[in-house]
């Protein structure tokens, strides 16, 4: 029954990261911190999907040179590679917007930057 404890650790970490990121996104007012929250949320989701593909004692899924035995699933890793690339571009775009906001208003506080309301 030993393997069960290490198996679940990634999912506990996912839950923790999700909680932290939701807290940050909902309650922080600094735009940079909101972006950090989204980045943490992305990390949590990526960790979740990669951990799903893990097999105990599995080897890297390189088909041309695998030793005998179980491989970890390659599909989640391929998916997450895509997702990481997307996350980088989303975060880069968000940061440029924050730079523009700062230039216009001299502030990156979400409460003060309220040109649009009502």
């Amino acid at each position: 029954m030993m393997p069960y404890i290490p198996y679940n650790i990634p999912f506990v970490a996912v839950a923790l990261l999700m909680g932290v990121s939701l807290f940050i996104i909902l309650f922080k007012r600094n735009l940079i911190k909101i972006i950090m929250g989204i980045a943490i949320m992305g990390a949590a989701v990526n960790l979740f999907v990669v951990a799903l593909g893990y097999r105990a004692g599995g080897v890297a899924p390189i088909y041309t040179s695998t030793p005998e035995g179980a491989m970890v699933l390659p599909v989640p890793q391929a998916l997450i590679l895509t997702s990481i690339v997307i996350a980088v571009s989303v975060i880069a775009l968000m940061l440029t917007m924050v730079i523009h906001t700062y230039r216009h208003t001299g502030d990156i506080d979400a409460k003060k930057s309220r040109l649009l309301k009502g």
Binding site: S83, I86, S113, L116
Partner: peptide, 27 residues
């Protein structure tokens, strides 16, 4: 226009969160 940046930022934040929720569900 300062308000254009603000509107775009709101859209990307909402979109990023919803896309991550979708990815979580796909997982």
């Amino acid at each position: 226009l300062a308000d254009a940046v603000e509107g775009g930022f709101k859209y990307i934040v909402i979109s990023a969160i919803s896309a991550l929720l979708v990815l979580f569900a796909i997982g």
